[in-house]
């Protein structure tokens, strides 16, 4: 049986997570179908069709799916998913939102946030904020899985899968979209960036995050923050890297004024190279950093920006 993969998008662009999501799916089986559910999302479907290893892209283009609300997307994926061996979505706030509904409606377990595929029914996932790693085996007929995409490699965009329109309207009166306040940024998304630079409580206030911007611009980096910085109101919640925020694994992670609480480490410790800049030489972040620089970040950051 084939594998159904839910595509993450904003009705215009295919998100980078999908390339890694498809990589996880190819480790479970050979026949992959993608589902693009949205409104006026044909461009996304065209882009999705290029992902290597995909044989078919199902396109559910309907006003009801514009905001990908859990209630109707859950029904849609449940109905389509009955004929598949696996249903996958990225462990983003979209996937985490509707996938458990799919699992419950299919009367199967969900396996959340997998970081490795051992076989078609055996998966590895972190528990206790990544302080323990569990290997689980599912005997359910349909495996409903969310994937921590940072743990997988991107597939090539070399394919040309067929598109197939799906006309299933699952509109309901349970929920309605009211509004969104989305952060606008010219920088790459945190979860897709090659370089991430994050600030913590040591930044002292939100204005000082400007010190990170010049460096981010030179490195093409995304800007993140620790939970302490978010809770203190320095920056918005969507910048949070950590157990309850975003999980990132860039090639280079620069932690500035971040002490290294377990909560934060859980969100970035799989980065390839970690740099820590902190005035406290005892800060736990130095125990996992490849390169540590002890000193005053207000002197170091301008110097770093100038030398890049």
């Amino acid at each position: 049986m084939a594998i159904l993969v839910y595509v993450e998008h904003d009705n215009a662009h295919l998100k980078a997570e999908n390339l890694k999501l498809v990589d996880a799916a190819t480790k479970m089986g050979s026949e992959l179908h993608l589902l693009v559910a949205g409104y006026q999302c044909q461009d996304v479907a065209q882009q999705a069709a290029t992902l290597a290893g995909v044989s078919k892209v199902l396109v559910a283009d309907d006003a009801a799916y514009q905001h990908q609300l859990a209630e109707n997307i859950g029904e849609l994926v449940t109905e389509l998913g009955r004929d598949y061996s696996h249903i996958l979505a990225a462990a983003t706030t979209t996937g985490k939102n509707f996938m458990p509904r799919v699992a419950a409606l299919l009367d199967v377990a969900q396996i959340s946030d997998i970081i490795n595929v051992e076989s078609a029914d055996t998966f590895v996932r972190p528990i206790y904020a990544g302080n323990a790693i569990a290997t689980v085996q599912s005997e359910d007929a349909i495996k409903v899985i969310t994937v921590r995409t940072s743990a997988f490699d991107a597939v090539e965009q070399s394919g040309s899968a067929a598109l197939e329109a799906i006309s299933l309207n699952k509109a309901n009166n349970l929920s309605a979209f009211v509004g969104a306040e989305l952060t606008k940024s010219e920088r790459p998304e945190l979860t897709a960036a090659r370089v991430v630079i994050s600030g913590g409580r040591g930044m002292q206030n939100g204005d000082n995050f400007k010190l990170l911007e010049g460096i981010a611009d030179k490195l093409g980096a995304a800007i993140g923050a620790s939970r302490a910085a978010v809770d203190a109101g320095f920056v918005p919640n969507d910048m949070q890297v950590g157990q309850t925020g975003k999980i990132v694994a860039p090639e280079l992670y620069i932690a500035v004024g971040i002490s290294g609480a377990i909560q934060h480490l859980a969100g970035m410790k799989d980065s390839k190279v970690i740099v820590a800049i902190n005035k406290d030489e005892e800060a736990p972040i130095f125990q996992i950093a490849d390169y540590g620089l002890v000193g005053d970040l207000f002197q170091i950051l301008p110097e770093l920006e100038a030398s890049l």
Binding site: I127, G130, N131, V136, I288, G292
Partner: peptide, 27 residues
């Protein structure tokens, strides 16, 4: 549940690296 827990392991420990003296050395 139909999901069996096969094993639980400690995560691979990341080794700390080196301290650098200044920005020039870091870069």
């Amino acid at each position: 549940s139909k999901v069996k827990l096969l094993k639980v392991e400690a995560p691979a420990q990341r080794q700390g690296g080196v301290k650098v003296a200044d920005v020039a050395e870091l870069v």
